[in-house]
């Protein structure tokens, strides 16, 4: 049952991710943003299968709830029309595809290098990523990075306000 769910969510993640990047039916950025929501949601499903319940909730709240809404607001603000197809430069396309193929072959090589199954050598997973253990480690071992993160968010907020002023001096 869990394996079936994994294949379902993995297929959904990859198909929707592909549709974010290259949608054959629509060039509208709004469509891409909507498929990004689907990708994020199915990825939250994968997180649940990995017993990372808190992160699954955070993923849906922060990404699907905040980041995508921000994207949609900006698309609405910019009033981006359906972009016309432009000619992509041959050199750029060829080098880009070579780069992607190179990276994917490196990844695939890693999988084929380990001829014995990776997870067969590991003990059975028992970790539960609930809120309580994660909160405990976040406020003890990772207290300083956590506080620095709040400063980072403050800096980002100030920066965004400054950047969106009408006349930058």
């Amino acid at each position: 049952m869990q394996d079936l769910m994994f294949y379902l969510f993995a297929a959904l993640t990859l198909i929707c991710g592909m549709l974010v990047v290259a949608n054959p039916f629509s060039r509208n950025p709004v469509t891409s943003a909507m498929f990004l929501v689907l990708t994020i949601a199915s990825m939250a499903g994968l997180f649940v299968l990995l017993h990372a319940f808190f992160l699954a909730a955070v993923q849906v709240l922060v990404y699907a709830g905040a980041v995508i809404v921000l994207f949609l607001f900006v698309i609405m603000l910019l009033n981006v029309k359906e972009e016309e197809r432009r000619k992509i430069k041959k050199v750029g396309l060829v080098t880009g595809i070579i780069a992607v193929i190179a990276i994917s072959s490196i990844f695939l090589k890693v999988f084929t290098l380990s001829n014995s199954s990776l997870s067969a050598q590991l003990p059975a997973p028992t970790l539960e990523g609930g809120t309580a253990p994660l909160g405990k480690i976040l406020f003890t071992a990772y207290l300083l990075p956590f506080e620095m993160l709040s400063v980072l968010l403050l800096v980002a907020m100030v920066g965004v306000i400054l950047l969106s002023k009408r006349n930058l001096k």
Partner: peptide, 19 residues
């Protein structure tokens, strides 16, 4: 890994900043 490659393809092949 596959999702990372899809994202990389998008960064390289698409021309719209939002995408």
């Amino acid at each position: 890994a596959l999702l990372f490659c899809i994202g990389l393809l998008g960064v390289i092949a698409r021309r719209n900043l939002l995408i």
